[in-house]
C-alpha cells in the first residue's frame, strides 16, 4: 500500500521516528534497552532459571523440534496443517455466516421459520464450547454409519466443527454491519425499482461488509489459534506435534516453537487489522469535515 503524507526526511526514517523526532528516538531506544535488560536480569537471576533455559530454550531442542527427527514429527511441518485448516474453514465460514445473517434479516411472516432457525443456530453455537462441538462431531458422526459422511478424515470433522462454531460469531458480525447501513439506502434502492434482493446485493451488503472487515479479521485471529484444538480428534497439527516431541524428549522447547509459529502468523493479520481500523478512522474524520 502506498504511504500518503509528506515525503520522509531520510530513506530509512520510518513512520514512528518521523513522529517522534531525533530526541524522541534516542529516549525511546534507551528506555526500550533498559526495560528489556531489566527483564533479562530478573529472568536470569531467578531461582531455577537454568532449568527453565534448558527445558524451554535449549537451541538444539528448538531446532530438532522445528524440523523433526527420526520418529518424531516436525512442528513446522505439522503447522502447515493448521494453516490449511484455517484457510479451508475461513472460506466456508465467510459463506455460511453470510447466509445466516441474510436469512435472519428477511422480513415477512412466511420467512418466520427460517429466521427462527437462524436465531437458534447462532444462539446454540455461540453458547457451546468449541471442544464439545469437536467431540460431538468428531466422535459422534463417524459412529453414526451415515455413508461417506461417517468416513471422512479426522481433520474434516475438525474443519466442520470450526465452521459451525465460528459461523455463529461471524454471522453476528455481518448482522451488525447490515444493521449499521441506514434504511434510507434500502429505500433509495427500492425506489429505483430494484428488488429487495438486488438492494441487498448491490447496495446494503457491500457497505455492510466494508464496515465489518476489522472485526472479521479479529475473529480470524481467534480462528487461527483454535485450529490447534482440532488435535483432540487425532490430527497431528503443530500443538500435537509439539506435545509428541515434548513427551518423548522430556523437553518443552517444542511448545515454544509451536507458540512462536502461531504468534508469527498472527502478527501480520493483527497489524493489517490495525491498519484498516486506522484507515476507517481517517475516512470517518475526513467525512465529518466534508
Amino acid at each position: 500500500m502506498a504511504e500518503g503524507g509528506p515525503a520522509a526526511p531520510g530513506p530509512s526514517a520510518g513512520r514512528g521516528s518521523r513522529a517522534l523526532g531525533n530526541r524522541g528516538v534516542l529516549v525511546s531506544s534507551a528506555s526500550t534497552v533498559l526495560f528489556f535488560a531489566m527483564i533479562a536480569v530478573v529472568v536470569v537471576l531467578a531461582p531455577g532459571s537454568g532449568v527453565v533455559a534448558e527445558r524451554f530454550f535449549d537451541p538444539s531442542h528448538l531446532w530438532q523440534s522445528l524440523v523433526g527427527s527420526e520418529g518424531l514429527p516436525s512442528v513446522l511441518g505439522a503447522f502447515w496443517l493448521n494453516v490449511q485448516i484455517f484457510m479451508f474453514s475461513e472460506v466456508f465460514i465467510l459463506i455460511l455466516a453470510l447466509v445466516i445473517a441474510v436469512v435472519r434479516g428477511i422480513p415477512g411472516p412466511v420467512f418466520f421459520p427460517f429466521r427462527l432457525v437462524a436465531v437458534a443456530y447462532t444462539d446454540l453455537f455461540r453458547g457451546v464450547p468449541l471442544i464439545l462441538v469437536l467431540y460431538m462431531i468428531g466422535f459422534g458422526v463417524p459412529g453414526l454409519d451415515l455413508g461417506f459422511i461417517s468416513y471422512l478424515p479426522d481433520v474434516a470433522y475438525g474443519v466442520i466443527s470450526l465452521v459451525l462454531v465460528y459461523s455463529a460469531y461471524v454471522a453476528e458480525v455481518y448482522r451488525a454491519g447490515i444493521e449499521s447501513v441506514h434504511e434510507s439506502q434500502n429505500v433509495a434502492a427500492r425506489s429505483l425499482g430494484l428488488t429487495r434482493w438486488q438492494s441487498l446485493r448491490f447496495v446494503v451488503l457491500p457497505q455492510a461488509i466494508r464496515r465489518v472487515i476489522p472485526p472479521l479479521l479479529n475473529d480470524f485471529i481467534g480462528l487461527q489459534k483454535d485450529t490447534a484444538l482440532v488435535s483432540v480428534l487425532g490430527s497431528i497439527e503443530a500443538a500435537r506435534a509439539a506435545q509428541i516431541y515434548g513427551a518423548s524428549e522430556f523437553n518443552y522447547a517444542s511448545y515454544v516453537v509451536a507458540a512462536l509459529l502461531f504468534v508469527l502468523i498472527t502478527i501480520p493479520l493483527a497489524r493489517f487489522t490495525d491498519r484498516l481500523i486506522a484507515r476507517d478512522k481517517r475516512r470517518r474524520e475526513a467525512g465529518a469535515l466534508a
Binding site: 433509495a188 425499482g193 430494484l194 438486488q198 448491490f202
Partner: peptide, 27 residues
C-alpha cells in the same frame, strides 16, 4: 416512477456513474 429525497441518499460506495447506471442495468 422516479423519486428524489431531501437527503439525496446516493450510494456512497459507488462512483457517480455507477450510481446512475445501477438501476437501469439491474432492474
Amino acid at each position: 416512477i422516479g423519486i428524489v429525497y431531501q437527503s439525496f441518499n446516493l450510494f456512497p460506495h459507488m462512483t457517480v456513474l455507477r450510481n446512475v447506471t445501477l438501476a437501469p442495468r439491474e432492474a
